[in-house]
C-alpha cells in the first residue's frame, strides 16, 4: 500500500542532478540524460523501461497540467541514481492538485476516456510515488532489482 502522505525527509536527494525544463522538448532531453545514467549504472532493461515511463508521465503532467504549458514557468527535474535505487523529484510552479481527486482510469465508466492514466502508470511502475501537500511536487523511488546480484565477469 503506497502512502500518499508527504514527508520532507522522504526520498531525500543528497547529490541530485538538477535540470530546469520549460517544455516537452527540454524534458525529453533531460529524460535522455537520466537514461544514460541508468545505463551507466547497469540497470536492467525492465527497470529502465519503468523509470522512463514514470518520468515521462511525471514531466508531461508537470509541464502540461502543472505549468499549463506556460514556457515562462519552469519544472525542476531532480534525480539521483545509485546502484541500489533511483530517486526522482519533479516540481512545477502550478497551484497543485489532490491526487486522490483524480478519477480511477481503470473504473468501468472511465475506461474509454482518452486521458487520466499517467498517475496510475507511475504508481504501477515505481516502488514509491508521493505528492507534496500542495500537489505541485512529486517524488518517486525505484529500487534496482539487479543491485543484489553479483556483477558478471568482464
Amino acid at each position: 500500500m503506497l502512502s500518499l502522505q508527504y514527508r520532507e525527509d522522504w526520498g531525500r536527494i543528497l547529490e541530485p542532478t538538477v535540470t530546469q525544463v520549460r517544455d516537452l522538448t527540454q524534458a525529453r532531453r533531460a529524460a535522455e540524460a537520466l537514461l544514460s545514467e541508468l545505463a551507466r549504472q547497469g540497470y536492467g532493461e525492465a527497470t529502465v523501461f519503468a523509470i522512463l515511463l514514470a518520468v515521462e508521465e511525471g514531466l508531461n503532467n508537470a509541464i502540461r497540467h502543472g505549468n499549463g504549458s506556460d514556457r515562462s514557468k519552469t519544472v525542476e527535474f531532480a534525480y539521483e541514481v545509485s546502484s541500489e535505487k533511483t530517486v526522482v523529484r519533479i516540481t512545477d510552479e502550478g497551484c497543485g492538485f489532490k491526487p486522490q481527486n483524480i478519477p480511477d482510469p481503470t473504473a468501468d465508466e472511465n475506461l474509454e476516456k482518452p486521458t487520466g492514466r499517467g498517475i496510475t502508470l507511475m504508481r504501477a511502475y515505481m516502488d514509491e510515488v508521493v505528492f507534496s501537500e500542495r500537489g505541485n511536487e512529486n517524488r518517486m523511488v525505484k529500487w534496482n532489482p539487479e543491485a543484489s546480484k553479483p556483477r558478471p565477469e568482464n
Binding site: 515511463l53 482518452p114 486521458t115 492514466r117
Partner: peptide, 17 residues
Amino acid sequence: VSHMSSSALGVLITLHK
C-alpha cells in the same frame, strides 16, 4: 514500438471511438 506513454493510449482510444 518498445516505449509508449499514456498520451499515446489516448490517441488509440480516440481512433477506436
